[in-house]
């Protein structure tokens, strides 16, 4: 049973360490299929991750990989891209890694519009450390640190990325793997900072605390809370509560940071700077 997947994974690392039904594996499959569609040379791809269950992805893919510190995947990736702009740099983060610990790095990578692809696996909880609520846990849902329900307002990562200046912003789910694959493919292909949030399931930490015992229950819930962007736009504010729009939200062209930096190097050299 050889599939495209086998060409891009470190088979000796499998079966993966994720819990049964974890969405990380579904996202990993979508990333690999998107890269295969683009026929990229896997030695020219760098996958960078931080800390969390989702960050284990870099251990399973046969690219150049780097597992960094919590929330700091984007700064490391920025360094890699600046040093060698020819590399394709993919950053995989979880919701806590991206929006809490690495929140500042996220908005500033978007502001600079550096040519990276950020894939955020949003399972709406800190899964690895035991189910503490994250900035993306919906209001009213339960976590080990919110036994009476979460009173925080959650971030809308799509709106945050658009406001911060990203070039490409999309949201998919693990229930819709074909759509997610094509969104990731578009994001990888886009010059500039691309963001794809994939709503994922954590049956063990999130599901158990929110009355969804099985992975299938969680996927059904994800199906129920998501609507296409087109349907979403016709919704009243009341109908939008507790729902997520999925699809492509932004794809615009803006000079990316590495291009601008090249121009600065040229300018400095013309004025007699060191070559």
């Amino acid at each position: 049973m050889k599939t495209v997947i086998n060409n891009y994974i470190r088979e000796e690392m499998f079966p993966n360490m994720w819990c049964p039904g974890c969405g990380n594996g579904i996202v990993l499959g979508a990333i690999i299929r998107a890269i295969d569609d683009l026929s990229w040379d896997k030695d020219k791809i760098v996958a960078v991750s931080g800390i969390g269950c989702s960050s284990r992805i870099t251990g399973y893919v046969d690219f150049c990989t780097m597992n960094t510190t919590h929330g700091r995947a984007l700064p490391f990736a920025t360094g890699i891209k600046m040093a060698n702009p020819d590399l394709k740099v993919i950053v995989v983060m979880g919701d806590g890694d991206c929006s809490a610990i690495g929140g500042n790095h996220f908005i500033h990578a978007a502001r600079r519009n550096i040519d990276l692809t950020a894939i955020i696996i949003n399972n709406m909880i800190y899964g690895m450390t035991g189910g503490q609520y994250s900035p993306l846990t919906p209001t009213g849902k339960y976590g080990s640190t919110a036994p009476y329900g979460n009173i925080d307002q959650s971030f809308d990562l799509v709106e945050l990325a658009i406001a911060a200046g990203a070039s490409y912003v999309a949201r998919g789910t693990v229930y819709n793997p074909r759509q997610s694959t094509s969104l990731i493919k578009n994001a990888l292909d886009k010059k500039g900072f691309s963001v794809v949030e994939i709503i994922s399931d954590c049956p063990v930490s999130y599901g158990k605390m929110n009355k969804m015992k099985s992975p299938a229950d969680m996927l059904k819930w994800i199906k129920d809370i998501t609507v296409s962007k087109k349907v979403w736009e016709g919704f009243s504010p009341d109908e939008k509560k507790g729902k997520y729009a999925i699809g492509e939200f932004l794809s615009k062209d803006r000079p990316d940071y590495t291009e601008l930096y090249e121009e600065i190097i040229k300018k400095a050299q013309e004025r007699g700077g060191n070559k």
Binding site: M1, I9, F14, N16, G25, I26, G29, P177, T181, L219
Partner: peptide
């Protein structure tokens, strides 16, 4: 192929 695409463990093709 939805089983294959949704399998988190690449266990079915």
């Amino acid at each position: 192929s939805l089983c294959e695409l949704r399998c988190p463990d690449f266990a079915i093709t």
